[in-house]
Design a protein around this nucleic acid. Structure first.
Lengths: 348, 348
DNA sequence: CATCATGATGACAGCGCTGTCATTCGTCAA
DNA sequence: TTGACGAATGACAGCGCTGTCATCATGATG
């Protein structure tokens, strides 16, 4: 075996499965099997093969594997944007859940364009992916059509909705915002406003939840809503709030579409010496780590973004192994309103 | 052509290059050429081929392409962690620079482990990538060895250092921190401290820059340094600062390893009613968007993370087209100290 | 001892595309 | 009209691996 290995190394070329086979003195197909389903190869052969692989530093060629098998071991992930820190946590969950699976994530971004999403879905699907992960439920009809025909697990993350294409993992943004808005009302705020940037579908549903709570409380009339299609940021929170308070000084609380905005509102309110939570209540969405650290700590709707990513990958892995939830399942990870000082704190 | 297309569609199978060829009434190889180098195909044929591609919805199979050509159109990107918001901006720059190139990014994370990095480099390199992007200059000797032998462009991002493997795009973290520390001294702070979490090599160099400035000012004796290997976060900033001020109440300024920590320091100082910038100066690193929005706005060392990502991809694209900088080039994107109220503000 | 089931292994072809040549065709100068 | 030349196109083989089926050795069974 040693001399076989030396001979092969001397070729100084890419090490292929055939080289490993030669070194281990078996046929290529046996090496392939040892890699794919080790239990179908005798321990003796397996041992020799493993040793040969280690000594030659063999790494399988995924292109050849994909071509021959028609599968790719690639999970396509289509999200609106990489710089949205909400997705960063989701991605982290995915990468962690991937480990040891031989699967790879292929990330693509739509820039919040449904057409771009449709195109990416089309491209991914022709590539025979092991799975597809999409953000949200608002795929175009054509895209849903493509996806319905797909023969790989499809997970919609971020949100649960009425009709998952296959499996959905997320939460109800409507309900989260509804609960947060109701909390503001319970705390005695009588003129809450909604601040939103980058009004994607999930933001729209949060807004709807806010409105529903206001209607319920008979406050629909006094409610103010300020939104912008521009990306969300802390400075945007400052600007939107400055705009809001300039035109509607009677506002006494703000439900923010996300935590970046909430932090901006906090800063801007501090600049204007509006005392929090007495003069102004602030509530965010997502509960980024910094909400609790802020001064005062900011109330927010906690979402399990890391868990969403993890679970999405886990679902696909389960499916590939014949387990997992059936098509049509929604997994609601829920949310938890984290009540902090910015809305008056916890009153047992 | 129409009836050829109908015939092909009826097979209801994957559309291959051969199908396109049949529909366009040319040989497969001509279709391949039309895709790869359109100028080598007559306009007439090209037109028919393009029409056939559109009507059939043909998408090339990258696995087959990779196998046949020995190239993959994949750029491997190896970074420590996806949840570090510094890398999010870099990634955004990369994705933007990728558009229209047919190239794809394959992201992998090391979890700050040099061994994991070495393994990933090995795996990526055997895959014949179009390029490789690495974070920093601290690859293991074995990894550098592998990389030196690689026959694809390699870009080290985040940092410029003495001996780039191929091309480096970044800045001097030492100098950035040095300048920031000197600024604190110029502002009259006489007992500055350094706060650091997740002390990766770049953080170490920032610390070195801080120390150099302190020595220069003859303040090495009074200097305090608090670090932790744990991940950086706003709450970690609160905790580290609480720890620091408890043991060393004489501290009058803090240079933070990054902006998360700086924000945490701001919040914690506010909780303790330490007035900023009079009782305490705060300086961050990276200049995340929220630094300017904070109350008071926080001084920070601005870095062009988006530009780094963009330039890294642009370098690889240039190289693939035979242009671009020669091996051994370092591109220093520099930094800019953004002086704000948290260190006393700008004094012309 | 013959028969069969079982597990282990191998031969063969082909996945979809592209590199390398060879061939065809039209065009122009001699 | 002929030959030479370049542009356009095609034939062929093979990239590295795996699915399918066939083969072989082994031990269990009656």
């Amino acid at each position: 075996m040693i001399c076989a290995i030396i001979k092969i190394m001397q070729k100084n070329q890419k090490i292929t499965l055939a080289d490993v086979a030669e070194a281990a003195n078996v046929s290529p197909i046996t090496v392939s099997r040892a890699l794919r389903s080790p239990d179908k190869v005798s321990p003796k052969a397996r041992d020799r093969i493993e040793r040969a692989i280690a000594q030659l530093g063999y790494v399988p060629n995924p292109a050849a594997r994909a071509l021959a098998s028609g599968r790719t071991d690639v999970i396509g992930v289509i999200i609106p944007s990489v710089s949205n820190n909400v997705f960063a946590e989701v991605m982290r969950g995915m990468y962690d859940a991937l480990s040891g699976s031989g699967l790879t994530v292929q990330l693509a971004t739509t820039g919040y364009s449904p057409l771009a999403e449709e195109h990416l879905i089309r491209v991914f699907l022709t590539q025979q992916p092991s799975g597809l992960i999409l953000a949200g439920h608002d795929q175009s009809p054509a895209a849903r059509d493509l996806l319905a025909r797909a023969n790989c697990p499809i997970v919609q993350v971020m949100e649960v909705g009425p009709k998952p294409i296959d499996v959905a993992v997320g939460l109800s943004h409507h309900d989260g915002a509804f609960l947060a808005a109701r909390h503001l009302i319970e705390r005695g705020y009588r003129a809450p406003a909604f601040l939103g940037a980058q009004m994607d579908p999930r933001s729209q549903r949060r807004l709807a939840g806010f409105r529903a709570a206001m209607r319920e409380a008979g406050l629909a009339e006094v409610t103010q809503v300020v939104t912008t299609p521009e990306p969300s940021s802390v400075s945007m929170g400052c600007r939107l709030f400055a705009d809001l308070i300039a035109h509607h000084p009677q506002i006494d609380a703000v439900l923010c579409n996300n935590d970046d905005l909430a932090l901006g509102v906090l800063f801007e309110a501090q600049r204007r010496n509006l005392s929090i939570p007495d003069r102004l209540g602030i509530c965010g969405f997502n509960d980024l780590e910094m909400m609790e650290a802020a001064q005062p700590p900011i109330t927010s709707v906690q979402t399990d973004r890391y868990g969403m990513g993890q679970l999405a990958i886990a679902q696909i892995r389960d499916r590939l192994e014949g387990r997992g939830h059936p098509a049509g399942t929604s997994i609601d990870l829920g949310f938890a309103l984290q009540i902090r000082d910015s809305t008056g704190g916890w009153r047992g």
